[in-house]
Design a protein around this nucleic acid. Structure first.
Lengths: 157, 157
DNA sequence: CTTGAGAATGCAAGCGGTTTGCAATCTTCC
DNA sequence: GGAAGATTGCAAACCGCTTGCATTCTCAAG
């Protein structure tokens, strides 16, 4: 809010996207706006389904930053609620941009052969989850749910 | 069916359990009945919640076989439907004996602090899952779902 | 514009769970 | 008892991920 325009920077900086919201969010969390950070978010913005760290890394292309940097940034961005982490059980975490409202998550139907992903509607498990927590005395309840199958394209032998 | 009694073995072999079903199953799959194999199944029989490879290994106690052997056996036993694999998202696979009928699975409510596990009733997702498969043209559909929270014992600071 | 404190990055090493190649051993069938 | 083939132990390797440390970068204050 207090800073008029962040675009006085080096020529190779990515300046295409309207950074307003992002920037605000980043600054709220005392995070610095760095090239890798912006590039990662750009990559996620361009893809609709969750990406692995490796996929993000190759999508970065020219701005080829260290894997450790991506790992660290994904933690940071997740902690700030900017991205959401998913686990499809294949050993590699996947990340997706959080929706605008920040709340609400959804689940996925993942092809076990080609990894094609169908994003499902909003989660319908919240009531059940709350009941469950109450019944067993658990707090801070959450869940993970993913569906797996062979997508139409992969069914032909 | 054709083999009367498999109990003519070495003294340190575990022979307490009625091995009939197991043995039959093992033989159907052309598997050999080995000491590690039996011991692993014994360990699983004695525990109600899913165990990690490391937990299985330490539970084996005296019969201290190689970790690689356990890993290989878990794959084999899973492929044969004798055990079921669960993934609680902490990086270590967990295994449970399959129920008698071989079909039907359940889900878990896992404490994120002490790993205490509540086993939930039979899965209620099968209808939904089938609908989903039909709607999107997927086959061989399956799913994973686990709940996480702080158990009553772990809530006090 | 300069500057400096602290944040972020790159690099390399390390870690935990898991897999694999290979030679030695064990199970089962004849 | 013996042979074929499955299974095991061992060691090395793999994979995703994390971490320590020195260097570089960001940003706000002067």
């Amino acid at each position: 809010m207090s800073r008029p325009c962040p675009q006085h920077q080096h020529p190779h900086r990515l300046i295409q996207q309207p950074l307003s919201d992002l920037t605000d969010k980043l600054r709220q969390g005392e995070l610095k706006i760095t090239a890798p950070r912006q590039a990662i978010l750009d990559v996620l913005r361009k893809h609709s389904s969750p990406l692995t760290i490796k996929e993000i890394h190759t999508s970065l292309g020219k701005l080829d930053c260290d894997l450790a940097t991506i790992y660290r940034n994904m933690h940071t961005l997740e902690r700030m609620g900017l991205v959401r982490r998913y686990d499809f059980g294949d050993g590699a975490a996947r990340f997706e941009l959080s929706p605008e409202d920040g709340e609400g998550h959804h689940h996925h139907l993942v092809c076990t052969r080609c990894a094609r992903i169908v994003e499902l509607d909003d989660c319908f498990l919240n009531d059940f989850q709350d009941q469950l927590a109450r019944r067993h005395g658990y707090t801070q309840i959450s869940h993970r749910m993913e569906f797996f199958g062979l997508c139409p394209n992969c069914q032909a032998p």
